[in-house]
Computed example of a mutant assay.
Amino acid sequence: MKFKPSIKPYTGAAGGWGSLEATTRFVLDSKQALKNLRNLLRVNKVRGFDCPGCAWGDDNHSTFSFCENGAKAVSWEATRNAVEPAFFAAHSVSTLQQQSDYFLEYQGRITHPMRYNAETDHYQPIGWPEALALIARHIRQMDNPNQIELYTSGRASNEASYLYQLFGRMLGTSNFPDCSNMCHEASGVGLKQSIGVGKGTIRMDDFEKADAIFVFGQNPGTNHPRM
């Protein structure tokens, strides 16, 4: 059956109280509400830490320097939910592939290195020495370093990303993109060709001086930093 595109009414909140309600719900669902409220007051502050959801600069102009997605990312990083080996013993990979992204995200953090067993279709726990030896063996079997790609999430910390790319350079490759890099590569090239710099040129103060603000292709409540 051929897919027929259609336009449907959107009843969700794009900002305002609806966005605030969703942010509060995620903070409470983390089961570490007080800790995450303190964290959110420090996001993108000069003496705080960078939001794991975007690359907005340090700012002391406002109390809340994050968007709805930023609040979700900060709350999730502090989760106490944990995925123990027993979880993978009870769920095959084929079963997990049928689950929603929401379900998988809310199971929590993986606590042990895991190795896939094709015969049982399950992930099985493996010790760190064995895991590192397995990785090293595969790296040594490569014909050249550029056969490896070190992909990571844009939500990884700056420190973790630095160590990751340093490892790649020691191997002799620069194949380590992250999801943010891949998403913004095209816009960065286009902006540099058109205005001479590959990122936005505005400052927070510009919003207060503007007579009109145009937003294209964004959901201001969830995606646009603190719009």
Results as ranks from 00 to 15, higher is better:
131 A>S: 07
196 G>T: 02
139 I>H: 02
69 N>V: 13
78 A>R: 10
112 H>Q: 07
117 N>L: 05
130 E>T: 05
98 Q>C: 02
81 N>C: 06
191 L>Y: 07
144 N>G: 03
183 C>N: 11
168 G>I: 00
165 Q>G: 03
150 L>H: 06
197 V>W: 14
137 R>Q: 11
115 R>I: 15
111 T>H: 06
141 Q>A: 10
76 W>D: 09
131 A>Y: 13
113 P>H: 03
97 Q>Y: 12
103 F>D: 13
136 A>C: 05
194 S>Y: 08
185 E>P: 02
143 D>E: 10
197 V>F: 09
164 Y>M: 14
162 Y>E: 15
192 K>M: 08
173 T>C: 06
76 W>M: 02
112 H>E: 14
95 T>A: 13
68 E>K: 13
170 M>N: 08
101 D>K: 05
126 I>H: 05
80 R>M: 06
94 S>G: 15
98 Q>P: 08
135 I>E: 12
184 H>C: 07
92 S>Y: 10
77 E>C: 03
106 Y>S: 00
166 L>K: 03
127 G>D: 12
78 A>S: 11
120 T>M: 11
169 R>V: 11
187 S>N: 04
193 Q>P: 07
138 H>K: 10
148 I>A: 14
110 I>K: 00
128 W>L: 09
157 S>E: 13
75 S>V: 06
193 Q>C: 03
180 S>V: 14
179 C>A: 10
93 V>K: 10
124 Q>C: 09
80 R>A: 12
137 R>V: 01
115 R>E: 15
152 T>M: 08
73 A>H: 05
93 V>Q: 08
186 A>R: 03
151 Y>R: 09
164 Y>N: 07
113 P>G: 01
83 V>A: 08
66 F>Y: 09
93 V>E: 11
136 A>Q: 14
197 V>N: 05
197 V>D: 06
190 G>V: 05
70 G>T: 03
129 P>L: 04
80 R>S: 13
146 N>H: 12
132 L>M: 14
185 E>A: 01
85 P>M: 00
74 V>P: 02
90 A>V: 06
173 T>D: 07
110 I>Y: 00
150 L>I: 01
